[in-house]
């Protein structure tokens, strides 16, 4: 798995996203401090780090939901803030902490977003995606009737509507049961392998990150403290798994 990911990178290292010395300062915190990295096509990139490390902030910077204090983001070779519309048409985002209009049916919500992204032949696409996320039996239910996990799946289905080239996911598996979480992981791998979709996601599930990430970026207090394949990061900290790396980092300054 990881070997093929690497091989792909060596063969065709097409950079889809570049972050250049991104800094975001809030009143009391430096949430992201001089983050620079490049993400390649077809890569699954896991962002990890303790609560408050800056993962969500970083993702928001990459989506222009947040204006950086300094630094730039370019996606598909275009500067994000100057080509917002063009870029956002080709990426998508889903997160456990956003909802959708609850008084609309599942179908109506999907139609709305399909119209927004100008998805061709959208009825068919919606059918496929709802089936893929296993909520097709809820098509005509009001969105307020969905359980938390079903809502996450709807969010995920929405995020795939426009066949994004980059999929941003903030804790996509947080509210899913183990079986569904596994299905989502398989789905992400499948998207990468068949459509060369790039996935940038956050998670607190270390095993999951180890399992599906081609590469991880480890954040702590806004700093990137490690960037590489899961194996490289484990080696850097001389640990057997990411869980142990995480604990070592989270517990204190005695890194290295």
């Amino acid at each position: 798995m990881k070997e093929t990911g690497l091989a792909r990178k060596v063969l065709m290292p097409y950079p889809v996203l570049q972050a250049n010395r991104l800094v975001k300062k809030f009143k009391h915190t430096v949430a992201v401090n001089s983050a620079s990295f490049t993400v390649y096509e077809g890569e699954i990139l896991g962002l990890l780090g303790p609560n408050g490390a800056g993962k969500t902030t970083l993702m928001a910077l990459l989506l222009d939901l947040l204006t950086p204090t300094s630094g730039t983001v370019s996606i598909f070779g275009m500067e994000l803030r100057k080509n917002r519309e063009k870029i956002l048409n080709q990426v998508n985002f889903s997160s456990t902490y956003i909802a959708m209009p609850l008084s609309l049916t599942v179908r109506e919500n999907m139609v709305f977003f399909a119209m927004l992204y100008h998805v061709p032949d959208y009825e068919k696409r919606i059918g496929e995606l709802l089936a893929l996320c296993e909520i097709d039996h809820l098509t005509n239910c009001l969105t307020r009737e969905l359980s938390t996990g079903q809502l996450s799946r709807l969010n995920l289905a929405k995020a795939m509507l426009n066949r994004p080239k980059i999929l941003f996911l903030d804790e996509p598996t947080a509210s899913l049961d183990p079986e569904m979480a596994q299905k989502v992981r398989d789905l992400l791998k499948n998207l990468r392998d068949t459509l060369r979709c790039t996935v940038i996601y956050t998670s607190h599930n270390m095993l999951e990150i180890e399992q599906i990430s081609d590469r991880i970026i480890f954040l702590n207090r806004g700093e990137i403290i490690a960037d590489g394949t899961p194996r490289q990061v484990m080696e850097l900290y001389q640990k057997r798994n990411l869980e142990e790396v995480f604990l070592k980092v989270a517990r204190g300054p005695g890194i290295q």
């Binding site: 989506l63 939901l65 917002r84 519309e85 063009k86 956002l88 048409n89 990426v91 998508n92 985002f93 997160s95 956003i98 909802a99 959708m100 209009p101 609850l102 008084s103 977003f113 927004l116 992204y117 929405k158 941003f168």
Partner: peptide, 14 residues
């Protein structure tokens, strides 16, 4: 109210 703003802001909608 429906916490839908983020969905709108990550879309190309101006």
């Amino acid at each position: 109210w429906s916490r839908n703003l983020l969905n709108l802001f990550v879309s190309p909608l101006t």
